[in-house]
Amino acid sequence: MSLNEAIRVLVEDGDTVVMGACHEPIIPFAAAHEIIRQKKQHLTLVGTISDIMVDMMIGAGVVKKVIIAWVGNVSGGLGNNYRRAVEKSIPHPLEVEDHSNFSIGLSVLAGAMGVPFLPTKSLLGTDLLKSNPRIEINTYQDEKLAYVPALTPNVAIIGVQRADIYGNSHLWGNTGIAMEAAMASKKVILLAEEIVSKEVILSDPNRVLVPSYKVTAVVHCPGFNHPSPFQGFYQRDHEFFHQYHKETKTEEGFGEWLNDWVLSLSNHEQYLDKLGRNRLEQLKIKEKQLAAPVNYADK
């Protein structure tokens, strides 16, 4: 499926969407750009840390609410659009349901497990309990626990190194909450750097994100992660994050940035062209550090 079609058909206005579940790496920026281009509305974004992707989507006006642990620019500073939205309702008011990385992880795990909540010793004593009244304090055998409610997002959009056309995929490196998010969500869209045969994926089933019956669409989209890091394929483009931080300090500045990098382009190919194939080439991982083969033979 093309990226345009996957977003058009599978992401609806008002949906709850988890995107970029590995924190700093493998963020599906290409999908965020496409959601912005298609002017989706009233989305609720669920996540831990998706670096500037969330800030960008808030500034573009596609987000109604965030259920999230962190929004900003990991190496650059605060999220300029997040600040404008919360402090001044620009471009419109934003609802914030505060979480920590663990409580979001538990929310989607509860969703994946089919239970209404999961308990934790984290968050006790914090004001997250005030700004997120959905997290309750309860007592079990004299122990205080925070009960974190389950989340079952409409869509998970997750990047993977490689997938087959059926939706089996390999994700390696740190996985953040990607597996829990894929299991909890009603629909899963995979963005894959490479499309490979089913045999390649099934040669190493321990590395599979989720089995293909859980996956709704596979999009072949090389470079979807730019500027975030992507093990085996691309280093992080630090300068891009720092430039974004500088250029989005004002609302006007962000408007220009968004037009230059998203709205004036019609697809991800054009984004990569604008970035410059040389720049992408420089970010490419060129060395090899291969895992030792594992033997799954039965006889």
Binding site: G79, E87, S100, F102
Partner: peptide, 21 residues
Amino acid sequence: GIEEPKVKLPGSGGAADIAAL
């Protein structure tokens, strides 16, 4: 404060968990 924040900072990330646990 929550109601009318002067500056919205990024939030917890893993910080609340690290401090609690």
